[in-house]
């Protein structure tokens, strides 16, 4: 769920920024997306992307831990029951 939320929010925020760029610079949608992906993070691109990858990895780990704790609590319930 955390990973899903992460990916969903990245997509929604990218769309919002692309819409603003379309309106402000009169770009087409694909031009705006290209502008976001290539020109806006030209400097320090790797630092920005490193942060995003860090977020994605942490969300996958959190999801895994939630899944594991759910599994363990289910197993405990079964043994108690």
């Amino acid at each position: 769920m955390v990973t899903f939320a992460f990916i969903l929010l990245v997509i929604l925020l990218t769309i919002l920024i692309a819409l603003f760029d379309m309106s402000l610079f009169e770009f087409s949608f694909f031009e705006a997306m290209k502008n976001i992906l290539y020109s806006e993070i030209a400097i320090g691109r790797y630092i920005a992307l490193f942060g995003a990858v860090l977020g994605l990895i942490s969300s996958v780990i959190i999801d895994f831990r939630i899944h594991r704790s759910k599994k363990e609590s289910n197993a405990d319930e079964r043994t108690q029951g």
Partner: peptide, 13 residues
Amino acid sequence: IPISMIISLFSIL
């Protein structure tokens, strides 16, 4: 933590 990284990324983008 994951969403803080989204904010960091989009503060640049």
